[in-house]
Amino acid sequence: MVVEDEPELGADIAGYLTEYTCEMATTFSEALEKIGMYTYDCILLDLTLPGGDGLRLLDILKQEKRDDGIIIISARNALTDKVTGLTTGADDYIAKPFHLPELAARIYSVIRRKQFSSTNVVDQNEVRIDLLSKKVFVNEKEVALTKKELDLLLYFVGNRNKVISKSALAEHLSGDMADMFDSHAFVYAHIKNLKRKLSEAGYGNYLKNIYGTGYKWEI
């Protein structure tokens, strides 16, 4: 469910998350009503809502010991909100503005954590990613990836069949520091290494360069 008072942004999020079924709520009471009726794999929660503070919804969910995944999306961008949000039981926090692929990757990660708490393994064609031990196997053979390469791989898996711009990738890899540079050559270098390692292990060419500026993990 997307709880967001800006319908335009809510619609865009739903439009991007095509592999999920998205419900929308634009006010506090609407969100409260829906929470009462259904459980969700993941709730995207905006904190500034007409009719109430998003953090109160968080409290209600926790009191009922619900295990819906919760990601706070907030314009407040305040450190205190972030801390309060995470201590009251949100699974993640993302500040506006954000890249949709970044949000998708986080949703993917939250849902996986909720669903597979003990053996968190992703199987994707020939590749298997063990999220707990942080190991990657291709055809049962382990591939040694650096932390950033693994990070990228998970990002792509969370954004299957989506075109991801290089700047979104750069921002994912180095946060705020990324756009201090014009060139995102380092993104290219990491992706090249990742592709090389995977294909050497016998993985097909699923990771494609699109239009020269983006990448797509095509399944």
Binding site: E6, E8, L9, D12, I13, G15, Y16, A75, K96, P97, F98, H99, L100, P101, V163, I164, S165, A168, G214
Partner: peptide, 11 residues
Amino acid sequence: AIVQSKLDLIL
């Protein structure tokens, strides 16, 4: 955030 998401969608 809206502009950003629109750009991501256009891609």
